[in-house]
């Protein structure tokens, strides 16, 4: 799951000079992920991984890093 999300983020949402060196704990928001990017990311995750992420939980804390994002998704994956 993470590699697919990673690919989507770095191909569609933000440009980082060297995605391979961007760690799962690096800050996506600092790297340029904004409100529109978060919206597209959530739609991508919901469409591809059969999970619904509750609106109330959309928050910087849950999308700050790839690891935080994964934890958030796993909490809702049955």
């Amino acid at each position: 799951m993470k590699p697919k999300i990673r690919e989507f983020i770095f191909q569609e949402l933000i440009f980082v000079a060297n995605p391979d060196q961007f760690s799962d704990d690096d800050d996506l928001l600092e790297a340029g992920l904004d409100s529109m990017g978060i919206m597209r990311l959530i739609m991508f995750i919901e469409d591809n991984f059969g999970v619904t992420l509750p609106d109330e939980e959309i928050d910087p804390d849950n999308v700050q890093t790839l690891n935080a994002l994964e934890k958030w998704i796993l909490r809702h994956k049955k």
Binding site: S35, D55, E57, I58, P60
Partner: peptide
């Protein structure tokens, strides 16, 4: 400012 990334909040 922080609320711009939390639509429901």
């Amino acid at each position: 400012n922080r609320l711009t990334l939390s639509p429901s909040k």
